[in-house]
Design a protein around this nucleic acid. Structure first.
Length: 781
DNA sequence: GACAGTGAAATTTTT
DNA sequence: TTTCACTGTC
């Protein structure tokens, strides 16, 4: 394939975006507008047609998946693209820090702490706080880092005005530095600091990367924006691509303002809009646009459907979540009978908890499905154990890892002994830091293993035996790994391009893994296999498998297999750990490819399906309760993202009642439904009056048609199910939560009996006796 | 240090 | 309802 042919398939706006040069460029790419094609073509075009050195191109994304896809597609067009740096923000930050570890004052063997690890670490430093309080602190610290705020920054008050928070943040930083490890925020923050403090390195980086591109720019946070500024110079060609309407990670620090004000911050910015949508039929785009157009803070785009009008989206009102699940199952089965594969379908929901009902129903009806995002392979206990052991071998000062594995399986080393060892190691670390002007000296003498050795004789016999055992295991494993040269000490390495690491050739990963499995353990897998065995973790989890019938040994084997691509030495181990920490997605090889996808709306970003059902469109669920202002706008964008995943058919469901936290609650339809033009929807089921009146008030449907669609909460003829005999107006009853009350009204809605109860406390509530028999008790008079 | 029992809480989560 | 952290007992 040549440049001529890739350019010929572009529309005029895409072409302009690909061939644009000479000023900063903001590409506003609507959903399904061929954004990835533009980025990859641009990379290929720069190399092939403009003779840009592949090494001087940097393209950053947010997910590994997107980075892989970008690399794959660009390389297919122009093989030299494989030499460009196509990474996630975090992976790029890690790359920079690893290669300049000494300059950054870091241990080159640093591993990366996830949020759980951070909570454990801070929890140890602040024993007076409950776990929940610690989690809240870690969360706020993480936000602070997203906004590029150090503990001394007065703006920290925006996150938490309590001056104590800054102290907690400072303490956390101190303890984290002592471990020699980094958290996710540091992977962005520390490179910024490094580049600011080392102008020479900064100019080297800025001159190396002549072209910098950012994908999904609407999801960048302040720190990432600062990072971007730090790696670019006046000569850099900066091109960002994004869609302000798809910014859905505000709660994690994403700053829509980055994209909204890009053109103001980078003078001379040219803006190109990609508004032609190649994914969805126009009737789907209409309702998506109607909702998102109500947002105030947006740059504004109008999607133009390149496909036909298609089928109108179907809005179905259902009685409760069981009916909703059954409705989805029937949709899927009916389509399947007509030849539509299961994989064409995706069931979307706002919260993971909603997946359960669909799983049960689909299991029951034998519909193959997969739940995206709930796998969490790396969060399993056995995997975290093994990874902690690996991390400890790599970095003997990793406090969290040490505490996790030193007494697993139990070796008689309780918390008291652990504290002693940690304190001893810190004492030595401070001593040596004192001698070398405050800089931490990360050598063998200051790690937990040598601290353990020193303390051996002060311990009880039981603890002594256990600790010696532990020391032996780690020493044996370290020997097996060999004392290879430590990478990352040489700042000049930044000039070289590593094209050999596995993460840059991910397309071969799974195939290689399969091959490796057949041959038995190879590479680092040999080491991981030995570690799992020698640590006693294998035996321990084998025991757990036998008790609980779990799959822990199999999971550990999976981890061993995953290590086979890395070299059997220290740098191989570091690479392996970094890869796992930064890319938690695991291709599940066994799953049936022809299955329905159950997924949260957040997780669908970047995906597309022929047929999509967005479920739970009820006030309080979606949008979530108490969402207003900017938060409500974000929920609306989420709705927009959900709708625009659908290519051919979109279904929306809304329930009149829903079991939430073990209690049945009455639901009102989501406001997003009345923000759509009802004329653009096909409405099934009985529409609640609230929906109809709101839609009518908004001019969405005529009053007359509101009358024709039977209102669901209007009294209907009595259905004889015996219930109405017992739950009669005037009867006294007792409710678990609200106490005594009197039935004020009884009527049928959704063919179920509904009673209105006035409580002695003054409140008024509606219930469905059929579902709430347990918490409602009739009082005999 | 393991385990059963209790009580409170309950989004979304690229890295 | 389910989950998970915390508590007290052995």
């Amino acid at each position: 394939m040549n440049a001529e042919s890739w350019l010929s398939v572009l529309n005029p706006e895409q072409y302009a975006a690909v061939t644009h040069e000479g000023s900063p460029l903001l590409i506003l790419a609507g959903a399904g507008s061929g954004k990835t094609r533009v980025i990859t073509t641009k990379i290929a075009w720069l190399i092939a047609e403009r003779n840009v050195e592949p090494e001087s191109i940097l393209a950053v994304t947010f997910t590994n998946k997107a980075a892989r896809e970008m690399a794959e597609r660009a390389t297919r067009m122009e093989p030299r693209s494989s030499r460009s740096m196509l990474r996630t923000f975090h992976s790029f930050g890690a790359w920079l820090l690893r290669r300049n570890a000494a300059l950054a004052g870091l241990d080159s063997n640093f591993t990366i702490y996830d949020d759980d690890d951070a909570v454990t670490l801070l929890g140890k430093a602040l024993p007076a706080l409950t776990r929940q309080q610690v989690s809240a602190c870690v969360h706020k610290i993480s936000r602070a880092k997203d906004y590029c705020l150090s503990p001394d920054n007065p703006l920290l008050a925006e996150i938490d005005p309590d001056p104590e928070f800054a102290d907690v943040y400072r303490l956390y930083e101190k303890r984290l530095r002592e471990t020699g490890n980094l958290d996710f925020g540091d992977l962005i923050l520390l490179p910024v600091k490094l580049l600011r403090e080392n102008p020479e390195l900064q100019s080297r980086i800025a001159s190396r990367f002549r072209v910098v591109m950012v994908d999904e720019y609407q999801d960048s946070n302040v720190a990432q924006f600062e990072f971007l500024k730090a790696i670019t110079g006046p000569e850099t060609y900066l091109c960002v691509v994004g869609d302000d309407d798809q910014s859905i990670y505000r709660f994690r620090g994403a700053e829509v303002r980055n994209i909204l004000s890009f053109a103001d911050i980078f003078p001379g910015t040219q803006v190109i809009r990609l508004e032609r949508n190649y994914r969805s039929v126009s009737s789907i785009l209409s309702v998506a646009s109607e909702v998102v157009s109500r947002n105030e803070g947006r740059l504004g785009k109008t999607l133009i459907a390149e496909r036909g009008e298609g089928k109108r989206p179907v809005l179905t009102f259902l009685g409760n979540q069981d009916e909703e699940a059954a409705f989805c199952a029937e949709l899927v089965l009916a389509a399947h009978k007509k030849g539509c594969p299961y994989e064409d379908w995706a069931i979307l929901y706002r919260m993971n908890a909603q997946s359960l009902g669909f799983e049960t129903e689909f299991l029951h009806r034998k519909i193959p499905y997969k739940v995206v995002g709930s796998l969490k392979f790396y969060e399993r206990e056995e995997i975290k154990d093994a990874l902690s052991f690996l991390a400890f071998v790599a970095n003997g000062r990793d406090e969290v890892a040490f505490r996790r594995i030193v007494n697993k399986p139990t070796r008689g080393l309780g918390e008291v002994t652990q504290d002693k060892i940690v304190d001893e190691a810190r004492r030595i670390l401070f001593e040596s830091a004192g001698q070398s002007g405050g800089e931490f000296n990360f050598d063998e003498k200051t790690d937990f293993l040598s601290a353990s050795r020193r303390l051996l004789d002060t311990l009880s016999k039981k603890a002594k035996t256990g600790l010696s055992e532990f020391i032996n295991i780690v020493e044996t494993l370290r020997k097996l790994l060999g004392e290879s040269a430590q990478p990352g000490e040489n700042p000049d390495l930044v000039e070289t391009v590593s094209g050999k690491t596995t993460e840059e050739q991910p397309e071969n990963l799974i195939a290689d893994r399969r091959k490796a499995r057949k041959k038995g353990a190879v590479g680092l897998a040999v080491f991981v296999e030995r570690l799992v065995e020698a640590s006693g973790l294998l035996a321990y989890h084998q025991g757990q498998d036998e008790i609980a019938g779990t799959q822990r040994v199999a999971n550990l084997q999976e981890l061993v297999n995953a290590a086979s691509l890395y070299s059997l030495d220290r740098s191989g181990l570091t690479e392996f750990l970094e890869h796992i920490e930064l890319d938690r997605s695991m291709a599940n090889e066994e799953e049936n490819p022809d299955s329905v996808t159950l997924i949260t709306i957040h997780n669908t970003k970047g995906l597309e399906f022929r047929r999509v059902v967005i479920t739970g469109l009820e006030a309080g669920v979606f949008p979530r309760e108490d969402k207003q202002g900017d938060d409500l706008e974000e929920e609306r964008r989420l709705m927009y993202v959900g709708c625009t995943r659908a290519m051919d058919e979109l279904y929306l469901t809304s329930c009149a009642a829903r079991r939430l936290y073990g209690r049945t609650a009455f639901m009102e339809p989501s406001r997003f439904l009345s923000e759509m033009n009802a004329g653009n929807l096909e409405i099934l089921g009985r529409a609640p009056r609230a929906f109809l009146s709101r839609a009518a008030a908004a001019g969405r449907i005529a009053e007359s048609s509101a009358g024709r669609i039977a209102a669901g909460d209007s009294p209907r003829q009595t259905v004889s199910d015996g219930l109405s005999e017992r739950w009669k107006p005037g009867r006294k009853l007792f409710h678990d939560d609200y106490g005594y009350g009197i039935i004020a009204k009884a009527f049928y809605a959704e063919e179920e009996l509904v009673i209105m109860v006035k409580f002695e406390t003054g409140g008024e509530k509606r219930f469905m006796p059929k579902y709430q028999a347990k918490s409602l008790l009739l009082v005999e008079e």
